[in-house]
C-alpha cells in the first residue's frame, strides 16, 4: 500500500462506497467530499451523500507506463467519469473491451484491489469502473 495508512483508512468511505457530499443550497454533489461548497461558500449547507454507482465516460486515456505499484497492470485505461448526479471522478476502467471504452459509454462501479505491492503489508481496496454491457 502506498502512502500513510491512517490517511488511507480515513478514505475508506470514499474508496469503498463513493461517500461524498451535497450542497442543499445550490444542489451540487461533490466527490470527494468538500469542506466548503465552492459555489455558495459560507451560505452553502453540505450534507453527506453516497454517489450513484453508474456514470458516463467524459474522457479517457490508455496508460502504457503506470506509476509504482501499477507496473504489472499496463496497458490499462483511466477515465474521467460523470456520475448520474453530475459529480466527476477519475477511475481505472477494468473488465471492458477496448473498443467499448469511448466518450459517452455508460460505466458502473466495481470493487477491486487498488494497491497490493507489499506481500506483508495492508491491501488497499476501492472503486474502479467497468463498461455496462
Amino acid at each position: 500500500m502506498n502512502g500513510s495508512l491512517p490517511l488511507i483508512w480515513r478514505k475508506f468511505g470514499e474508496r469503498y462506497d463513493l461517500d461524498g457530499n451535497f450542497c442543499e443550497t445550490c444542489k451540487t454533489a461533490y466527490f470527494p467530499a468538500r469542506a466548503v461548497c465552492q459555489k455558495c461558500r459560507r451560505k452553502g449547507k453540505l450534507v453527506a451523500q453516497k454517489m450513484p454507482k453508474t456514470g458516463t465516460i467524459i474522457s479517457f486515456t490508455e496508460l502504457s507506463a503506470g506509476p509504482a505499484g501499477f507496473e504489472h497492470e499496463v496497458p490499462y485505461f483511466i477515465a474521467i467519469i460523470e456520475l448520474e448526479n453530475k459529480a466527476r471522478l477519475l477511475s481505472q476502467i477494468v473488465d471492458s473491451e477496448k473498443e467499448k471504452i469511448k466518450i459517452g459509454t455508460k460505466v458502473e462501479k466495481v470493487f477491486r484491489k487498488i494497491s497490493d505491492i507489499d506481500p506483508e503489508g495492508p491491501i488497499a481496496y476501492g472503486y474502479k469502473f467497468k463498461v455496462v454491457d
Binding site: H72, E73, V94, D95, V110, F111, R112, K113, I114, D116, I123, Y125, K128
Partner: peptide
C-alpha cells in the same frame, strides 16, 4: 480472478 481481484473483492460484489 483478475490481477486486482481476490476472495474479498468477489465477496463484496456477491454481497452487493
Amino acid at each position: 480472478a483478475a490481477y486486482d481481484e481476490d476472495a474479498c473483492t468477489m465477496a463484496v460484489e456477491a454481497a452487493r
